[in-house]
């Protein structure tokens, strides 16, 4: 991978989940700020998946 030119189109290559999670969980995207959606008493406007991962692996650091 390192020596190939960058593809114009990322789709054909399966991106690594860890790289995806860096971008999707850590930062980046737009937050709406003023919405609270509650279903079954769980706030779902933004589900903290990192917390989910933590809860699944209580004894280990997050797997990425």
């Amino acid at each position: 991978m390192p020596d190939e030119p960058l593809p114009d189109d990322v789709a054909p290559r399966q991106v690594a989940l860890i790289d995806l999670l860096d971008r999707l969980l850590a930062n980046g995207a737009v937050l709406t700020g003023d919405l609270v959606l509650s279903i079954a008493d769980v706030d779902l406007v933004h589900i903290d998946l990192r917390a989910v991962i933590r809860s699944i692996e209580p004894d280990h650091p997050a797997p990425w």
């Binding site: 990322v10 789709a11 999670l21 999707l24 969980l25 995207a29 737009v30 937050l31 998946l49």
Partner: peptide, 27 residues
């Protein structure tokens, strides 16, 4: 995560996008 990225990519191929954070849901 992969679905989210695929949708973002499909739009990004054609225009400038602001990707939303994963699992952003409106009522």
């Amino acid at each position: 995560a992969r679905t989210h990225n695929a949708v973002v990519e499909s739009a990004f191929r054609e225009t400038t996008v602001l990707p939303m954070r994963i699992a952003t849901v409106h009522p």
